[in-house]
């Protein structure tokens, strides 16, 4: 059998495509959920970091988040997966949690660290005069943030958030470190069925390329929409 025939056999006849589809779903779901967790978490962290005030609670959270961001930005995601899944979760009694869920949480935490920096930059990039004008009209800090600063910040960060999503898509390929059947692992299984990896890994690479291509297209579309909506 040629390597192509070998691939077709394990992909179609032995049902490998089912694994691949499931793996694709896991990859996409992990990336999307991680981004959502990341945006929520990152926004909370960013607002805490730029909040003014000297209260002990605020100071505690500022310190806590600073440590969180340094750890998650300062270590490789693969190490985070291994350490949290095999060491921390069992230690706190969560050793039986499904690897897919743990992976998703860890990617969310990881993304939150990066998004917090993006959001902070986005908020700080809005001209100070914008919030001053809001405050001078009598709006309080929250109203000024929600109605004036955040909408402009979000617009500024959309391209960067898009890049973050593309990174996430690719980085999820290390999920197999904790045994999750993602796109990468699905193709590896097909390859190892008859020790022939050329075609599976080629298609794997192409699949990521296509995913990234589609994701970039969507980001560009959103950007263009936002620009058209207020033709600045």
């Amino acid at each position: 059998m040629s390597i192509w025939e070998l691939f077709v056999k394990s992909f179609v006849e032995d049902g490998g495509y089912k694994e691949v589809l499931r793996g694709l779903a896991v990859t996409l779901v992990t990336a999307i959920c991680a981004l959502i967790i990341g945006i929520i978490l990152g926004t909370i962290v960013a607002f805490t970091q730029i909040a003014k005030g000297k209260g002990p609670i605020l100071r505690f959270f500022k310190g806590f988040f600073k440590v969180y961001v340094s750890i998650f930005r300062g270590t490789p995601i693969a190490v985070q997966l291994l350490f949290i899944y095999f060491v921390i979760f069992p230690a706190i009694g969560l050793g039986l949690m499904k690897a897919e869920i743990v992976g998703l949480i860890i990617f969310g935490l990881n993304s939150g660290a990066y998004v917090s920096e993006i959001m902070r930059g986005g908020i700080l990039s809005v001209d100070k005069g914008q919030s001053e004008a809001g405050r001078a009209l009598g709006l309080n800090n929250t109203q000024t943030m929600l109605k004036i600063v955040v909408p402009q910040a979000v617009k500024n960060v959309i391209p960067t958030i898009g890049n973050e999503f593309i990174s996430l898509l690719k980085e999820t390929s290390v999920l197999s470190f904790i045994g999750v059947m993602d796109l990468t692992k699905a193709f590896r299984e097909i390859g190892s069925a008859n020790y022939e990896y050329t075609i599976p890994y080629l298609i794997l690479a192409i699949s990521y390329l296509v995913l990234v291509f589609i994701a970039s297209g969507i980001v560009k579309l959103i950007e263009r929409r936002m620009r058209a909506s207020d033709n600045r």
């Binding site: 914008q130 001053e132 004008a133 809001g134 009598g138 109605k147 004036i148 909408p151 617009k155």
Partner: peptide
């Protein structure tokens, strides 16, 4: 207050700039 650099809200239309504060408050 009127500022040197105007500080109109960039994300809002002129009408929204004028109505934001009276409505929000």
């Amino acid at each position: 207050m009127v500022f040197q650099h105007f500080n109109l809200f960039n994300n809002l239309t002129v009408l929204q700039n004028l109505t934001l504060a009276p409505v929000q408050l």
